[in-house]
């Protein structure tokens, strides 16, 4: 299963259980980060995720997973790029929000800034 959280994290693991709040138990979880056409993963183990934070939950076709056209690299290599991607996106979103607020009369977003 692939789980995407509200903070943008992508977790791959085996779904062991869930309840009416979509609280999830994920076993043998790995976290994946992406940058352009490469990705890296980090072993994380057993997760209990509070349902509120789940954006998306999807089954992964393991056969198709074999021919994903992405290259795996070391986590240590990719992490700085990933952090930069996040920072860039944050800056871009802030800029956009400011333009919308000042020139277009939109309200400032009151939430956590993640669009959910």
């Amino acid at each position: 299963m692939l789980v995407v959280l509200r903070d943008g994290r992508k977790l791959h693991g085996v779904l062991r259980s869930y309840d009416q709040f979509a609280n999830l138990v994920l076993e043998d979880t790995v976290e994946r980060i992406y940058h352009q056409d490469v990705y890296a993963e980090m072993k994380r183990g057993l997760y209990l995720i509070r349902g509120e934070n789940v954006v998306l939950l999807g089954e992964i076709d393991l056969d198709q997973e074999d021919d994903v056209p992405l290259k795996q690299v070391d986590w240590e290599t990719l992490e700085p790029y990933h952090q930069k991607d996040i920072a860039d996106k944050k800056a871009r979103d802030e800029l956009k929000a400011n333009v919308l607020f000042e020139k277009r009369g939109f309200c400032k977003e009151g939430g956590e800034g993640d669009g959910y």
Binding site: V25, D28, R44, R50
Partner: peptide, 15 residues
Amino acid sequence: RGSTIKYLRVPDQLL
């Protein structure tokens, strides 16, 4: 408080 939690990571053996 429960409502402030994003997730918990627990030992693998627990399951």
